[in-house]
């Protein structure tokens, strides 16, 4: 008798709850657009937030609702954008341009000295709170690795010289590191920008010389050497216009500070 009762009661409970759930699933069903799930599966799934939304699934919701541009996913690039267009039945819009993060500072500890010893929290933002950072150069990389911590793709690491290194294979250009850097040393640039000047100092040449051995001193030697007038000096920094630059390499030869880098080589070396 007891055996039968236990069957009846436990089995009955299971049946009742099963039936209740089945009924509730029908009765309280929330209509969801199946395309949302399809697009979520297409996205990289790192939830980096480069698109401006909380994560991949909320971006998918917005893009289906037409509230977000289809090419907002930076890490996914052209491929993901094309796939989204296919799902939504739109014309492809994305350009081929690939973006990557680069560190605009060459001032490792021995090249750009500290002005005082810092023993606080090992975080760049915290270090900035003590009289604007411990580095003599007020624009250079502090090297505490806040960018490395935040990178959702594991593309950043601290190099032996105390500066972050970008793994160009893994970097998707999502820009999370650029947002985290309190000194804007990391920037997102087009991978087509073959030549660039990895210095962030807007100080005048004399000040830069005192605080760093390699920083751009705005001597304008490269400006004069460039046959295509691709280089200008803005805010005491040489800027290379990638549209005009034809990679002749003359600026690299004349630069006294050896601060002009060839991204083509950086990408090739990896």
């Amino acid at each position: 008798m007891e055996l039968v009762m236990s069957f009846v009661i436990i089995g009955g409970l299971g049946l009742i709850f099963g039936g209740l759930l089945a009924y509730a699933a029908r009765r309280f069903a929330v209509e969801e657009d199946p395309r949302v799930e399809t697009i979520t599966d297409l996205l990289p799934g790192a939830n980096c937030g480069a698109c401006g939304f909380a994560g991949c699934s909320s971006f998918a919701e917005k893009v289906v609702a037409g509230q977000a541009p289809v090419d907002s996913c930076v890490p996914g690039g052209k491929k993901v954008s094309d796939n989204i267009c296919e799902v939504l039945g739109l014309e492809s819009v994305a350009s081929e341009d690939r973006k990557i993060a680069q560190v605009f500072c060459m001032g490792s500890k021995d090249i750009a000295p500290d002005k005082f010893e810092y023993q606080g929290v090992r975080d760049c933002k915290a270090a900035m709170m003590y009289s604007g950072g411990f580095k003599a150069c007020t624009y250079g990389c502090l090297g505490l690795g806040t960018c490395v911590e935040v990178c959702p793709f594991d593309a950043l690491s601290m190099g032996e010289n105390g500066l972050p290194k970008v793994d160009t294979d893994k970097c998707t250009g999502c820009g999370v590191c650029a947002k985290a850097c309190p000194r804007n040393v990391i920037r997102i640039i087009s991978a087509r920008n073959v030549k660039y000047v990895p210095c962030n100092s807007k100080d005048r040449g004399k000040v830069v010389r005192e605080s760093c051995e390699v920083g751009c001193i705005a001597c304008k030697a490269c400006v004069k050497a460039c046959p295509n007038e691709a280089i200008t000096v803005e805010n005491n920094l040489a800027v290379i216009d990638s549209a005009k630059c034809d990679s002749c390499g003359k600026c690299i030869e004349v630069c006294k500070r050896q601060i002009i880098k060839d991204l083509g080589k950086v990408l090739a070396v990896k």
């Binding site: 009762m5 009661i9 409970l13 709850f17």
Partner: peptide
């Protein structure tokens, strides 16, 4: 009432899981 107190663990797990699912849907 039916002397099935020893079945409470399994019954409670069933009830709690079903209940939470139901609440979530509603």
């Amino acid at each position: 009432p039916f002397g099935l107190a020893y079945l409470r663990t399994i019954a409670f797990i069933l009830v709690i899981a079903g209940l939470v699912q139901l609440v979530e849907m509603i």
